[in-house]
Design a protein around this nucleic acid. Structure first.
Lengths: 149, 149
DNA sequence: TCAAACGCAACGTTATAACATTGCCTATTG
DNA sequence: CAATAGGCAATGTTATAACGTTGCGTTTGA
């Protein structure tokens, strides 16, 4: 699927790039570049250098297949690569689980704000940090645990 | 002004912290931590180490006097430290000039999105990158340069 | 007098610069 | 048709820049 998107655009989803994309999909939260390097090293025994991984990430980001989470220096596969867009991320500060959303209303408001200043918008970084439902639940002080025992 | 805010909260705006805050105000765009270290070294001849600067930045951020621009690993003084809030930044990719805004509508939409997922919001990172009016103008291909010669 | 702030050395993490190599495709040309 | 060479994108290698933290000892000021 990702490969067909790349093919249409004349871009090469090479083996390395595909593997990195697969690693990101297999990871249940945003992965750091060095986590990817480590994962590749374990799988191959032959080490992959940082520039190689960063170049692959750059390619995947250019193709809209991956996004960088700026507030965490980490990378996450993009759920909707067929549409070019900037996402809105909601990130759990406890467990790192991250949800990708889109909200045209947010995009419109940001564009409005920027335009009033005479800015030409190129990219939006919108990241909401907080506690996910699971971690909120887990943090409760065992008060009235109705479904517990 | 910043000192009075700190005083009310029982926090110490020490000389170092104040100097760093002043350096940030004097800088015309977000400053990196190592730029601050360099500026302090030039002023004092005695070098200040990274931990010292990072600790001061942490303090200033906790007090709402400074914000970190996540997409650039840089720090900017906060225009409205008396109100606790997350700002919206509009950043020029050419010259780095940065404008701090607030938009309750954006905050409301982000809260709405997060709440629907069961998230408790703790922090918002909203950074819009683009070209500022000046840089858009400067980038024009010398088309009708009326004030040129 | 003691907790908070600071200094310092070392280290860890994230990212890029600069340069070399590989693999593959194409274009000759004997 | 092989063989050779040139072009080019991707990848590899080495080193280093840029950003940030840990640990611990010393100073300082309410």
């Amino acid at each position: 699927m990702a490969s067909s998107l790349c093919g249409e655009r004349g871009a090469q989803l090479t083996q390395l790039r595909r593997r990195i994309l697969e690693l990101l999909w297999a990871h249940d939260r945003p992965a750091g570049a060095y986590e990817l390097i480590e994962a590749l090293r374990k799988a191959d025994s032959r080490p992959i250098g940082p520039p190689t991984v960063y170049r692959a990430l750059e390619f995947l980001i250019d193709q809209g297949l991956v996004s960088k989470i700026e507030s965490r220096n980490a990378y996450i596969p993009c759920a909707h690569p067929e549409r070019r867009h900037d996402c809105l991320f909601v990130i759990c500060t406890e467990c790192g689980s991250t949800v990708e959303l889109e909200d045209p209303r947010v995009e419109r408001l940001l564009a409005e704000n920027a335009t009033q200043l005479g800015f030409q918008v190129e990219r939006r970084v919108v990241e909401v940090e907080g506690k996910c439902a699971d971690c909120v639940e887990a943090a409760k002080p065992a008060q009235a645990p109705e479904a517990h025992g």
